[in-house]
Amino acid sequence: MSTAKTNHVLPGFKLTLGYTLSYLSILVLVPLAAVFLKTSSLTLEQFWTVVTADRVLASYRLSFGASLLAAAINAVFGLMLAWALVRYSFPGKKLVDALIDLPFALPTAVAGIALTALYAKNGWLGKLLEPLGIEVAFKPLGILVALIFIGLPFVVRTVQPILEDLDTELEEAATSLGAQRWQTFWHVILPILFPALLTGFALAFARAVGEYGSVIFIAGNLPMVSEITPLMIITKLEQYDYTGATAIASVMLAFSFTLLLLINCLQAWTAKRTGRDR
């Protein structure tokens, strides 16, 4: 971090950068470093035993699997929703557009108990699904439902602005060259949208992997079956196994940081592909 290269007329560089760095270090960087320092008190063998225990491995499979599936479902339906919101007029559109952000605004615990009430055996949706032999609440399927809920706005809100900025000329040109509508979508529109769609998918995935509040109420939390990785950390903490909790946390952190870098690259790609600054 060097000082200003050019001779600026504006004041406050040292003050603001200094404050930013100190605040960031005290609240975020130093406490996060505690995770890795605490983990390093374990030998490699101990660390490996903790993070690859059967129950922990089962939680990774569930957390990553359900998050990937939820993000994929959101990518498909989020794209359709964004398309409907940008391209079509329909009554209540403003309301739908505003409510897309509900998962950002609604506390996760509230979402969790609401989804559980809906999908429990006597709930509105649970009642309909029970005769079909589909159980959602207190099963891994319930986790998927909760992760779809919290991830949806990420896809819609990353794709929507790109769709709004699309030039109609592109599609007109494609049509005048004899392309069918679906060919135009597949060969002209989708390639432009793709980086944004992938970014939305990655954001939804990243959020889902770490999600706790909305999941634990509906999950059932059975070891080896419906226990997500963040819950494993809580369980270890409740048993005062701080090193165990921290070891698992460091695995999750390493994964999140990688994903964060990937998302930054994706956003740069989106900007390049669409000519937007951000």
Binding site: G210, L253, F257, L260
Partner: peptide, 22 residues
């Protein structure tokens, strides 16, 4: 620096609590 500022978004809330316990 911008990436560092983004960090708390990518950290699971459970880990956000854990770091202060540590």
């Amino acid at each position: 620096l911008i990436t560092l500022i983004d960090l708390p978004f990518s950290v699971s809330p459970v880990i956000a609590g854990l770091i202060y316990v540590l």
